[in-house]
Amino acid sequence: MAETVQASRTRPRPPTLSRVLAPFTWKFAVLAEVLALLLIWHVIQGMIGVWDRRFVPAPGDVIRALSDLYQTGDLMGHLTYSASNAAVGFVLAVVVGVPVGLLLGSSRWAYDIGGPPFWAMYSMPRIAFQPLLVLWMGFGSGPKIFIVFLMAVFPIAINTMDGIRGVDRSLVKAARVYGAGPVDVFFKVQLWAALPLILTGIRMGVARSMIGVVIGEFIGGSQGLGFLIYRKSGEFELDAAVGVTFLLVAIALVGMALVNLAKRVFASWYVEGAPQS
């Protein structure tokens, strides 16, 4: 139905290919750019071989190394290990970070009391604790999950805090006029109005949690993608190391794209970058 309305308003124009693709032009351009970079890399390393290929692998080497890792089953094992740790830590971060952000953002007392240690924790490089975490929790999944949690929880909490503070006061007033109590105002207005920023924080958290994954496996790790990068570099199999690094990057980007999708679904009314009153 919507299409007919649209058609009657604007003059019907035949959808040529260029017009259909117009919104994607720049996305294609970026894609082409990435492919071009890969091609240059291939020419420099794969065909000419400017540097020693053991040190700077060509794209073909990287793909071959990745497929070798996949075929031996190594890759999937490390991948699932990293992914499950990351998932547990990340969910914990959301479960803790959102309520903490809501509390700090909505109560002045909570902010004055909880704020100083919160900001102190936030501003310190938390990965400094990783060796201690290993000592405390052993060489298992514990410290890996915990460092992911530590990395992801702060951006989530901070954005939630900003979100709850930025809620348009007239929305709250309107809800009060219609007889909503504080509980209703919180759950039906403030939480929803803060949702876009909460999701922004969660997206940031995805990016940060990847740092946690890598650090957790670099220090006191024996499994996982981070460990795989570490070991393969140590064995001078840089093709595999570079491949796994790219895989990690891809996972991070996919994770963030998923959060973006969630934002578009649950907060479709929100325009990024629009001034928040």
Binding site: W26, M210, I211, V214, V242, V249, A252, L253, M256
Partner: peptide, 25 residues
């Protein structure tokens, strides 16, 4: 327009994962 997506991607990814490779270099 061509570089911002790449910069954003670099910002979003764990650059420290390069540490072992950089050490090898």
């Amino acid at each position: 327009r061509l570089s911002m997506p790449l910069l954003w991607a670099a910002w979003a990814t764990p650059l420290i994962a390069l540490q072992p490779i950089i050490t090898a270099w």
